[in-house]
Design a protein around this nucleic acid. Structure first.
Lengths: 341, 341
DNA sequence: TTGTACGCGTTATCAA
DNA sequence: TTGATAACGCGTACAA
């Protein structure tokens, strides 16, 4: 009988208004700025909403107000513990703001990052959070004219699109390697998986130190583009030992590899840290618990997530902070796995 | 001079149309159904889009077409490896469809799930994917009248809101425990963290088996609402041993706990599996690599993600599959940690 | 193959 | 404090 609407027949703000005997705009206001609507009307409206089961349509709202409460986030991986914690930080940073996170997984691919950027941009997000500093030129261009705050996370560099928060992976790599040298290891290897830009910079840090110490030997380096895993750590260490039987320490590109390396040593009865020293990167929870406990570099990924959102919120509310690039640093955690007597 | 638009002055489809010398609708079509537009115009339009840097507005599109390509996904955690892999499966299941994932993290809270459901519903998603079968009554009601396909994942049960794909955690718990009994362990403990509904059902499976075998003893059970971690596994095993020094095996609620338990045994020189048998749940990559390798239950979370999206796509295209509830099962992986000679 | 008129549900603007 | 009206940018229906 009644003319059918195009949509699924869901109640609209007009239905609520009619039922509450007020204008549509008043309902709109009651929802967004309750203070500006008299208590009487507010109650009538609330009742009508309840009875009708009205749910506001975000699309219409975004269209009409030319704004949107979405923060689009691009990370290379969700499975990777490190980024999972960044995301946790981002969520927690939201607090009581009305912002919503929109997650995109680039799978460590610049092309995919570009594609997702296009998709997300079409949502007219309030802000953009992207990982790393190695965007493709096209992606960078899109970021530049996005017309909203942009935060690059997990790394620091000299050419921020807008804001930036992270740390230097190169310095991280240097720090662990220096520690290994100081502990007296001389045949210090590097094993790395995936070898994304950040991994490469950590490796560059490693190389800088061993070269400076006159300890560099290409046969000590074992990498693969394969994604990282504990089992891969085991394999890579085996390869490394096959190539250089006199290897006496390894800086593992990340903690999963380090754990795999430890298990391989256990299985082959190679004493850690006596025969072989092991160090990882990121300092996941398990590193401290392992036996022997594993040296690693603690990165502040949760904090990075939190503060990235804080930066976004500050920018959105106009109170943009003076420092657009913040380096949260890292912390070397020396443990049993590199402490030979 | 020119009247300013309300929006940020971003180019619209009308701008593109004007520049390309065609009607707006033709641009719209060129974007969505390129085949229905002559090649000439298509090229002109593409050029205009390029020059203007036009990005379509998804909000306007969703509003006008009363449809949306978003699949809203609610998971209890993103940090948890298990759900991270589910999400990976979901992404991969998308394939070449135009669907987009919208992720929400409920933090294992029914209240938060309710809140997010409301938020997501206001986006009028094309489909909904939620974790588990323990929604609050209010959440369940919202799901029921969502007016779109709904998939409950990671568990099976008898009252699907719509579709469902997962496995029985109760059976999973029974299977591991039975294995432990069969291997001759007699003082079989259970350690569990977080104790969300799925953990509880696994524990119920454990209890069913040990009771049947006349082996049940409440002092063998150690649980905590604290989120799971490797270090917590270590602590819980320590507590368990303090309470029951004769403990000879543990079914760990998940693999992180199992790894922590293993490290604690290593550290305390308790032979695994000789003195203590250890079994985990989920079968993460590291379980096979550990020394000794760790028995676990392989769950098909990636597959669950993939197939959940497949079910959504089928439902959306009308070719709804006959079976609305699918049980993908699990697989007991027997390894060194429970194989005493 | 292309275009015109109109509606989608909401909010901004301005007036009452 | 409240309301009428006109956008917001795009897609549908129908016509050309």
């Amino acid at each position: 009988m009644a003319r059918r609407r195009r949509g699924g027949g869901k109640p609209t703000i007009a239905d609520v208004a009619r039922r509450a005997g007020v204008g549509a705009i008043t309902v709109s206001r009651a929802l967004r700025e309750p203070d500006r609507v008299s208590e009487d009307l507010r109650n009538q409206i609330a009742t009508a909403i309840e009875e009708l089961g009205y749910v506001p349509d975000r699309n219409a709202r975004a269209l009409a107000s030319a704004r949107d409460d979405i923060v689009a986030v691009l990370v290379p991986s969700l499975t990777n513990n490190v980024f999972a914690e960044v995301v946790r930080g981002l969520y927690d940073g939201l607090g009581d703001s009305h912002l919503q996170l929109h997650l995109g997984n680039t799978h460590y691919s610049g092309i995919e990052e570009e594609r997702l950027l296009r998709v997300f941009l079409s949502q007219r997000p309030s802000a953009l959070v992207v990982s790393g500093i190695d965007q493709t030129p096209a992606a960078r261009a899109m970021l530049q004219k996005a017309g909203c705050p942009v935060v690059q996370i997990m790394e620091t560099g000299s050419n921020p699109v807008d804001m930036m928060i992270g740390f230097s992976h190169f310095e991280g790599g240097r720090t662990v390697t220096r520690h290994l040298v100081e502990m007296g290891y001389r045949r210090i290897g590097f094993i790395g998986a995936r070898m994304d830009p950040r991994s490469q910079r950590r490796m560059a840090g490693y190389r800088a130190v061993v070269e400076e110490a006159g300890l560099y030997d290409p046969r000590l380096v074992t990498t693969t583009p394969t994604p990282s895993s504990v089992s891969l750590g085991r394999e890579l260490l085996r390869h490394a030992l096959a190539k250089s039987p006199d290897l006496d320490a390894v800086f593992c590109n990340n903690d999963d590899l380090a754990l795999g390396a430890l298990f391989e040593c256990n299985r082959s009865a190679l004493a850690v840290p006596g025969r072989i020293g092991i160090a990882g990167f990121n300092d996941l929870d398990m590193m401290e618990v392992a036996f022997p406990s594993l040296t690693s570099v603690r990165t502040h990924r949760y904090e990075i997530g939190r503060r990235a959102v804080a930066m976004v919120r500050a920018a959105l509310s106009g109170t943009r902070q003076p420092e657009h690039v913040v380096d949260v640093g890292f912390e070397l955690k020396i443990r049993e796995s590199t402490s030979r007597k």
